[in-house]
Design a protein around this nucleic acid. Sequence first.
DNA 1: CCTCCACAGGAAGCGCAGGAGT
DNA 2: ACTCCTGCGCTTCCTGTGGAGG
Length: 433
Amino acid sequence: MNNRIHRDLQSSKGLFQWKESGAGDPLEEVFKRALSRPKIFKNREVMRSDYVPEKLPHRDEHIRSLGEILSPTLRGSRPSNVFIYGKTGTGKTAVVKYVFKRFGEITSKEKLPLKFEYINCRIAGTEYRVLTELCGAIGVKVPFTGLSKAEVFNRLRRGLSEKGYLLVACFDEIDALVKNYGDNLLYELTRINEGFNGSGLSIIGVSNDLHFKDYLDPRVLSSLSEEELVFHPYTAIELIDILSERASEAFYEGAVPQEVINLCAALAAAEHGDARRAIDLLRVAAEVAERNGDEKVEEKHVRLAQNIIERGRVFEALSTLPLHSKLILTSLILLKRGGVGDPISGTVYQAYRELCGLIGVEPLTNRRVSSLISELDMLGVLKSDLVNRGRYGRTRKISLLTPIDEVEEVIRSDELLSTLLNHKLKIDLKRNR
DNA sequence: CCTCCACAGGAAGCGCAGGAGT
DNA sequence: ACTCCTGCGCTTCCTGTGGAGG
């Protein structure tokens, strides 16, 4: 099993290795190759996920609607709040950023007292930081910690009325904020305009959770969704247009044939029409082709890219986990390798405590481990199904969703856990004999 | 029909970090 | 120096629960 992982690692590395290895100065070779290699990328920036293109194919209607809704700002009155729904990669963020950019241009040309601020609630993280960013948008300086939320809120209100700004704020992934902190802040923000005329705050809420409305207080909902926009997933045909548009800017002519674009579009369309996925796929495929020294991107590169992206996702999700989550995964691996089918939470907790004992770490409580398992479930690493076993209680059956070898690979990238794993596996082997 | 298992998962609160205001 | 603020990770305590077996 060890060998297998080793082999996997080598072969995945092998992807990036040159076909022949020359002697002498190792960098010399790299330079020479890099300079003589056929070029694929003309402009790498264009394929980055946060790039806002000049043209957004198939979103004209949405751009016009949003512009229409925001147009009162140019005449100095406050526009309606807007709610935008749509799954990931349907162009919500791109449309908002694009519209903000264009309005920003007009604003600075005409010298209007307008501010447009884009905030990603999941990245901002807390209510406090969201408020801080709003303050920052209108030039009110706020320390990043130390003040009460109420104080920051007051400063925002004072700033708005003193400076006379009209602030249009986009709360992207607004569901993340509401799920963690409730809708109190939103309620307060929708009421901040009372007593203002001309200045104030308009909110654009963006969510990819279609059931998000259910979490909201009716009062917040009604004032927040004065206008609504719904973004539908892209079809494969639309994705082809989007990719072609980007590809023509990002790559040299002939480097990316049409059938490769079609393939990327088809693969992404099969997964809910996510444009971001499609673009990532094409970018990685092109990178693979480039590193390989090939002249153009081919189907095999796209297939490899698919693999790389998948592995990258797993690795990134798992390697940044805290120690105790990794210990839980380690126990799961050991139980699986030991021939236990899908263990129940009690068994996992026992194994986990044992591991903690071995490395001299104070174990967390059952309750906390239960939460960590739920978190891993939400991450999609494992699945925990509630099962009722009558007399034998009610518990969760835990199964790995990620291939066990991939999980083990990540666990083994931590030296301590790797040693622990080897140690335990050896003991189990002896016991079985 | 009732009991009782083996937990799930909500609520509250604690201690700490990292700051601000006085 | 002291008080007060929030977020975070965690514990403690608690109530709830579906169905096998008596």
